[in-house]
C-alpha cells in the first residue's frame, strides 16, 4: 500500500490547465522529484499536496486517508519554500518552534526539540539570530529545520536550492539527501534542475505542460527516456532524423545504423537519440567518419562539435591530459550497442 497517493489529480485556472489527470503513488520514505521546465505544473502539484491550492479534480490520500479537503493548517506537512519564507520578525529558535507552538507543545519540550533539529542542520550557535543576520545557506537550513521539527509525514521542497550559489548548491544536495535518509521522511522535491533531481531522488516524475511525461528512477530515466522531450530535458543529447529501412536498421541520409526497431514497419519516420558521452572517438577507422569543427576544453572533459554524414553532432570525451583533436582533424566515432534510443517522430 502506497503512502501518498494521487488519483486523477487536476488543477485548472480559468481556461488554463495547470495539471491534468495526474496519478502517482509514493512509498513511505521515498524521495521523489517533480522535474520540469517552469510552467509545467510541478509547483501547482506541490501546492495541492500542501493544501495551499484546492484541486479541481481528483483526490489525494495520505496513509490511506483522503486529505483532499483538509485545510493546509490541519495537514501537518513540512514545506520549504523557494524564498524560504522565514518569519523575519522572529529569531531562528522562534521560527523553528512556531509549528510546535501551534501544536500546543510545552515550552521546555519545544526548546529541546528546536535544539535537536538545529543541531541536525548544524545551526546550534545561531539560534538567537534574526533571519536577516544569516547567510543564504543558513536561512535555507533554518527553513529546513522549521519544516522538520514538526516531524511531518511528508516533507515538501519547492526549489529549495535555487537561490544558493553553485558550489553551496552541490554541497547542500548531498547534505539534504543524507539528512533525508537519516530521518526517513517521505520527501517531494520540486525542481527545474535535472542534476539536482538525478543526484537526490529515488524516482523522478518528469512533467511537461501539466502532464506527466515519465516516472522512473534516475538511471533509467537517463538511459531510457520515454520521449524526445525527456531525453532533451534530462541530460544533453544528439537527435537525428531518419526512417526505418529494415528490421533493426534505420537509415539517415546514406548511413545505416543498427537500432532496435521493435515492431515498426520500414518507411516509418523516426528520431535517434544518442548522448554525447556515449561516443567513442578514435583517430583510426573503423567508425563513422567526422570532421572536428570546434574543440572546447571543459576541465574534466572535452566537448567537440563534429560534422559528418549524420549532420552536426556533439561529442564529449574525458580529458586524458592532452589535446587530441583540434579544429579540422578527422576522427571516427563508434558506440556500444544499446547506446542509441529510437523515438517515433511526432508531427
Amino acid at each position: 500500500m502506497s503512502y501518498l497517493n494521487f488519483q486523477a489529480l487536476g488543477k485548472q485556472f480559468g481556461d488554463f490547465v495547470a495539471v491534468h489527470d495526474m496519478n502517482l503513488s509514493i512509498d513511505r520514505g521515498e524521495f521523489i522529484s517533480f522535474l520540469g521546465p517552469s510552467g509545467c505544473g510541478k509547483t501547482t502539484t506541490l501546492q495541492m499536496i500542501a493544501g495551499l491550492l484546492t484541486p479541481t479534480t481528483g483526490k489525494i490520500f495520505l496513509d490511506g486517508v483522503d486529505i483532499t479537503e483538509t485545510p493546509a493548517n490541519k495537514r501537518g506537512l513540512g514545506i520549504v519554500f523557494q524564498s524560504y519564507a522565514l518569519f523575519p520578525h522572529m529569531t531562528v529558535t522562534e521560527n523553528v518552534s512556531f509549528g510546535l507552538e501551534m501544536r500546543g507543545i510545552a515550552k521546555t519540550e519545544r526548546l529541546e526539540r528546536c535544539r535537536d533539529t538545529l543541531a541536525q542542520v548544524r545551526l546550534e550557535q545561531f539560534s538567537d539570530r534574526y533571519p536577516k543576520e544569516l547567510s543564504g545557506g543558513q536561512r535555507q537550513r533554518v527553513a529546513l529545520a522549521r519544516a522538520l521539527v514538526i516531524e511531518p509525514p511528508v516533507l515538501l521542497l519547492d526549489e529549495p536550492l535555487s537561490n544558493l550559489d553553485a558550489k553551496l548548491r552541490e554541497e547542500m544536495r548531498i547534505e539534504l539527501r543524507l539528512l533525508q535518509q537519516d530521518i526517513g521522511v517521505t520527501t517531494i522535491l520540486v525542481t527545474h534542475d535535472q542534476e539536482e533531481a538525478l543526484s537526490m531522488s529515488d524516482r523522478i516524475v518528469v512533467m511537461q505542460e501539466g502532464e506527466v511525461s515519465q516516472i522512473a528512477a534516475p538511471l533509467e530515466l537517463y538511459e531510457r527516456p520515454a520521449s524526445t522531450f525527456v531525453s532533451h530535458f534530462v541530460g544533453k543529447t544528439n537527435l537525428v532524423q531518419g526512417q526505418v529501412t529494415a528490421l533493426n536498421e534505420v537509415g539517415i541520409n546514406e548511413t545505416r545504423l543498427k537500432v532496435d526497431t521493435g515492431q515498426r514497419a520500414p518507411g516509418m519516420a523516426v528520431q535517434i537519440s544518442i548522448r554525447p558521452e556515449k561516443f567513442i572517438m578514435s583517430t583510426e577507422e573503423p567508425g563513422l567518419k567526422v570532421y572536428v569543427e570546434t574543440a572546447i576544453f571543459l576541465g574534466a572533459s572535452w566537448l567537440y562539435r563534429v560534422n559528418g554524414s549524420l549532420g552536426e553532432l556533439f561529442v564529449t570525451q574525458p580529458n586524458t591530459g592532452s589535446a587530441r583533436y583540434t579544429k579540422g582533424d578527422t576522427a571516427w566515432l563508434s558506440w556500444q550497442e544499446g547506446s542509441l534510443t529510437l523515438f517515433e517522430e511526432h508531427a
Binding site: A50, G51, L52, P71, A72, N73, K74, R75, G76, L77, G78, I79, F81, Q82, S83, A85, L86, F87, P88, F98, G99, M102, R103, R146, I150
Partner: peptide
Amino acid sequence: DPQSEDAGYCLGASKLTVLRRI
C-alpha cells in the same frame, strides 16, 4: 513575502493566528 503567510498555515496556524503572529 506572501509565502511567509503560507508557511504559517502549513505549520498549523489558523487564519487569525497567521494574521496576529505573522
